[in-house]
Amino acid sequence: MDVIKKIQQAIVYIEDHLYESYDLQQLSDYVEMSPYHLAQSFLMIVGQSPESYYNARRLTIAARELKQSNTRLIDIAKKYHYSDVNAFAHDFSDYHGISPLQVKTKSDELNMQPQIYLKLTTTTQPAPPYRLEAVGDFSMVGYSRFIPSNGLEDPFNVPDFLEDLKSDGRLDELVKYNDRSPHDIYVVRCPLDQGLEIFIGVPSERMPSHLENRYLDKRQYAMFNLQGEIDYAVSDAWHYIETTLQFSIPYVRNTLYLEVYPFDFSFEDSFTKIQLGIPLDDEEM
């Protein structure tokens, strides 16, 4: 329930700052959520990223002003802190599908975004299967990538990192160091105050100097068995978790989240088997 309140707070904050520059870090500081969790929860619950909602509302209000008044384009561009009229007209046309000069003659074609208010609803959609499992207590070697706050609204950060490692051969080399169980590729997401660290590695007893190492503490996870395209399977599961599961199972935010991939995963395979691990609050289980 708390996350719903925080997303509503984020919506109100955006509405109160539509004439200012968008900054995910400032927004996350205000609602006291990590940038990663705010961006993800907002997207899964609202259906669009915080930045997309911010831009849609700004351009909706700008369209309303153009329709109802004779305000000059240059004045509206300045009001919304655009560098010039052309930059404003470009964004306006890209979003609405018509130019600012066509607003009064083609107002029925405007893509108006009303302010969003959240409410709870029921669903009959079945939950993706998951099991409770203790995972961890082993060391890993691999590679990490830091994603700053302004890059967190890209839903393909993990697939892009995996593809980079796979295309240049580093992933194949990494698999050779998997000298202990479990024999899988682990993706660990670690939310930070200023962004997100993604670590991709394998369980290993060896610690070669050219690789980074991490130790995964043992803890209880809800492990979801997923199947689908790598770019979308995890996002679909998170949608259910953020909108439904949070009300029935005590999972922990601002800690490590796991994705487990088989060695032979493929970006072309629409039936890739993936495990998603969500850490649980042991005290409330």
Rank of each mutant, 00 (worst) to 15 (best):
M1G: 12
M1H: 10
V3D: 06
K5T: 07
K6E: 05
I7Q: 01
I7N: 00
I11E: 07
V12R: 13
E20T: 13
S21Q: 07
L24F: 00
Q25P: 00
L27P: 02
V31I: 10
Y36F: 15
F42P: 02
F42N: 02
L43W: 12
L43D: 13
I45D: 08
V46K: 08
V46G: 06
Q48A: 10
Y54L: 07
N55W: 10
R58I: 14
R58W: 03
R64M: 12
E65S: 13
E65N: 12
K67T: 00
T71W: 05
I74Q: 15
I76Y: 05
I76C: 03
A77F: 04
Y80K: 13
F88D: 07
H90N: 11
F92C: 07
D94K: 15
Y95C: 06
H96V: 04
S99C: 03
V103I: 07
K104H: 06
T105A: 14
S107T: 11
D108T: 14
L110R: 11
L118Q: 01
L118D: 12
L118M: 09
T121C: 07
T121E: 15
T122G: 14
T123D: 10
Q125M: 11
P129M: 07
R131H: 13
R131D: 13
L132D: 06
V135Y: 14
G136A: 11
S139Y: 07
G142T: 02
Y143W: 12
R145M: 15
R145Y: 08
F146Q: 12
F156N: 14
F156G: 04
F156H: 14
V158K: 03
L162C: 09
S167E: 14
D168G: 04
G169S: 08
V175F: 06
K176T: 13
K176F: 08
D179R: 00
R180Y: 01
S181D: 08
P182L: 10
Y186Q: 06
V188L: 13
D193N: 15
L196R: 02
L196N: 01
E197H: 09
G201S: 10
G201C: 06
P208C: 10
P208Y: 05
S209L: 11
L211P: 01
L211D: 01
Y215V: 04
L216S: 04
K218Q: 15
Y221F: 14
A222H: 03
Q227W: 02
G228H: 09
E229S: 15
E229L: 11
E229H: 14
I230D: 11
A233C: 06
A237P: 01
A237R: 08
H239C: 01
I241Y: 01
E242Q: 09
Y251M: 03
Y251F: 15
V252C: 09
Y257C: 00
Y257V: 07
Y261S: 03
F263E: 10
F263P: 07
D264S: 15
F267M: 09
F267I: 06
F267Q: 05
F267G: 13
E268P: 01
E268R: 13
D269H: 04
S270N: 12
S270I: 09
T272H: 09
K273L: 05
Q275A: 11
I278C: 06
I278V: 15
L280K: 09
L280F: 00
E284C: 02
E284G: 06
M285I: 15
M285A: 04
